[in-house]
Amino acid sequence: MKKLIIFLIICLFSISSVGCSYSVYAKKEKKEKKVKTEIIAHRGADDRAPEETMSAFKLAVKDKADFLEMDLRETKDKKLVLMHDPTLNRTTNGKGDVSRFTLKQLKKLDAGSWFNRKYKNERIITLEELINRYGSNTKYFIETRRVNNKLKMEEPLVKLLNKKGLIKKKKVVIQSYSAMSLQKIHKLNKSVPLVQLTLFKSKKEFTDKKLKEWKKYAMGIGVDSKLVDKKLIDKMHKNNLKLYVFFLNDKKEKSEQKRVINAGADGVFTNYITYTKSLTKSSK
């Protein structure tokens, strides 16, 4: 009888140990589950078509990027056009500040030949034209900025996004280096997800005070890849902030992408959509 009792105790202990081990393992598995890194097409598919043009965005949509990324500039007649630079010089056959021209004047420019002759007469497009083409069939990652150091584009932008139903359908994220721009958007519509872009040179600058300040209006931050590692990503996640990565060093972008995706970045602004997709698949 005594031997039977000892045997039963041993069995119960073994079952309990296995159960505990499984429970710990399951929790660990849940904790270590990889973040799905979102593919954000930087200025469209700008490796194969002139940046921020309809052709570049068309390729990005075809490649099934999670987001189309774009920069806003305001014209003389207050239209929101898609262009990164403040001037026309680099990506069109025009010269001068975008803000000095009306949309009608800008539409006469060639925005494609600089990239490749086959894109001759590609036109500058407005944000509304892009939305009219793709609607809610894709998502938009839109960068705002101050115009002549003033907050001008926020109200017309939110009005347009509301009109097209993109905020309600959760099809848009707005990003900016300007905290003032994001704060104004947050006051206009608290439902818009916002990302604070940063140009910090050191990880020490991501202080608890700074994170607390960002969390008042933003759901995430944008960081140069050279500062990104698992420790920084974990710090952001513990503070309920997502981390999106951009690449200031073009030559190292591909190798850096692999590193930050494996570290658990929430999204990457990629200039190589198909390459990034291969990385996100292999990291699952």
Rank of each mutant, 00 (worst) to 15 (best):
A65D: 07
E69M: 04
E129I: 02
A60Q: 11
L72F: 06
T92E: 04
T92S: 15
I124H: 04
A60I: 13
I131H: 08
L109A: 09
N116S: 15
L80W: 00
K104F: 02
T102S: 14
K107I: 04
K107A: 09
L130H: 02
R90V: 09
K95C: 01
K104V: 01
K95G: 00
R48W: 13
E51S: 12
K104Q: 02
E51L: 14
W114I: 07
K64D: 15
K118L: 04
K95M: 01
T126K: 06
T91P: 10
L130C: 08
A56M: 07
E74V: 15
S55H: 12
D85N: 14
D63Q: 15
L106S: 07
K95T: 08
S55C: 04
I125S: 06
A65K: 14
K104N: 13
G112N: 03
V98E: 01
K107S: 11
W114K: 01
I131D: 03
D77H: 07
D71I: 08
A65M: 07
K95E: 08
E129W: 05
A111G: 04
V61K: 15
I131C: 05
A111K: 08
I131Y: 02
D97K: 15
I125N: 09
E52N: 15
L80H: 05
K78R: 13
K118A: 14
D77I: 01
L103T: 00
P86Y: 03
L103F: 14
G94H: 02
L109F: 04
K118I: 11
T75D: 00
L106N: 08
K104E: 14
D77L: 12
